[in-house]
Amino acid sequence: MEFLYPVFIFAILALVIGVGLALASRYFHVEGDPLSDKIDALLPQTQCGQCGYPGCRPYANAVAADEVSVNHCVPGGERTMLAIADIMGVEPKAIEEEETVPVVAYIREDECIGCTLCIKACPVDCIIGAPKQYHTIVADHCTGCTLCLEPCPVDCIDMVETPELLEHWAWPVPGTKRAIKAETRKASHEDADV
């Protein structure tokens, strides 16, 4: 029986520790998942579904649960991806889709038949209109998700680039890319004959 002493001692110790940890785990129990809230706050909220989830919140939940990688938010771009990777503590992954210029949807009103299908598709309720009436998109609220293009039976919705505003103009990063932009801008002003 001598040889069983160590086994007993070890078992008792393990039991004590196990009970202690069980108590501790009850005391320090974490409610909910604050991570997914943090991720959701980073997402652009376009609700575009390009990530394969029906909106931003579901994607945030999926990322927080490690079900999906961090690089599926196309409108958020690299900056969002890096921020999420940072929170999740994983290596950043390149976004496969190309980053696009910011756009908003625009309805060519004379072609619109007033079918209200786009109104139903808009995730942020920014299309105004009634059956058999022209529809209009409130450009200030449009997230550029392109979800209204598909349902339109007469293809009268265009995605147009958002105009650059003087108040929103920001200095480009010092580098080479800035060269082309200014050159074209100058040319456009000369054409406009100001």
Binding site: W171, P172, P174, R178, A182, E183, K186
Partner: peptide, 8 residues
């Protein structure tokens, strides 16, 4: 023409 910030 390129965007060059002050100082010059």
């Amino acid at each position: 023409m390129i965007f060059l910030s002050s100082p010059h």
